[in-house]
Simulated assay, not measured.
Amino acid sequence: MVDRKMEENIAQFCGVTGASVKDARKFLEKYKRVDVAVDAYYNDPTALSSVAATPTRGGPPAASTSKLNALFDKYKDPDADADEITVDGTIRLCNDLDVDPEDVVLLAVAYELKSPRVGEWGRKGWVDGWKALGADTIPAMTAVLPRLRTKLGSDPAYFQTVYNHTFEFAKQAGQRSISTETAQAFWGLLLPHGMAGGALAHIEGEDVDMDGGAEGWQEEHVQWWFEFLEQKGGKGVSKDTWIMFHDFIRTIDAQFKTYDLEAAWPSTIDDFVEYAKERVQAGR
Rank of each mutant, 00 (worst) to 15 (best):
M1F: 10
D3H: 07
M6A: 15
M6D: 08
E8L: 11
E8H: 07
N9Y: 09
I10R: 11
Q12W: 10
F13W: 11
C14P: 02
A19K: 03
A19W: 08
A19D: 08
S20H: 10
K22D: 10
K22W: 01
D23E: 13
K30L: 06
K30G: 04
K30P: 03
R33H: 03
D35Y: 03
D35R: 06
V36W: 00
D39W: 00
A40S: 12
Y42Q: 03
P45Y: 08
T46V: 06
A47F: 03
L48V: 07
S49N: 11
V51N: 04
T54H: 13
S66I: 14
F72W: 07
Y75F: 15
K76H: 07
D79T: 14
A80S: 14
G89Q: 04
G89P: 02
T90A: 10
I91C: 03
I91L: 15
I91G: 01
L93V: 05
N95I: 04
V99R: 05
E102F: 01
E102G: 02
D103Y: 00
D103T: 04
V105D: 10
A108R: 04
L113I: 13
L113C: 05
K114Y: 04
S115W: 09
S115F: 01
V118C: 05
G119I: 02
G122N: 08
R123P: 00
K124G: 00
K124I: 12
K124T: 13
G125N: 02
D128K: 14
G129A: 01
A132H: 09
L133R: 05
G134N: 10
M141A: 11
T142W: 03
L145I: 11
L148E: 05
P156G: 12
A157M: 05
Y158Q: 11
F159R: 09
Y163R: 10
T166I: 01
T166M: 02
F167M: 05
F169C: 09
K171F: 00
K171V: 02
Q172A: 15
A173L: 15
Q175V: 06
R176H: 09
S177C: 02
S179L: 13
S179D: 14
E181V: 07
A183F: 05
Q184W: 01
A185I: 04
A185T: 08
W187V: 02
G188T: 04
L189Q: 15
L190M: 14
L191G: 06
P192W: 03
H193C: 08
G197D: 02
A199M: 09
I203H: 09
I203T: 13
E204F: 02
V208M: 03
D211G: 07
A214I: 06
A214E: 15
E219K: 13
E220A: 12
V222K: 07
Q223D: 14
W224Y: 12
F226M: 07
F226K: 13
F226E: 15
E227W: 08
E227Y: 08
E227L: 03
L229D: 07
K232D: 08
K232E: 12
G233A: 12
G234L: 11
K235I: 08
G236Y: 09
G236R: 09
S238F: 07
S238E: 13
M244S: 14
F248V: 09
T251I: 07
I252M: 11
D253S: 07
Q255D: 15
F256A: 11
F256M: 13
K257S: 14
D260C: 03
A263R: 10
A264T: 01
W265Y: 08
I269A: 04
F272T: 00
Y275W: 15
K277I: 06
K277Y: 01
V280C: 06
V280S: 05
Q281P: 00
G283V: 05
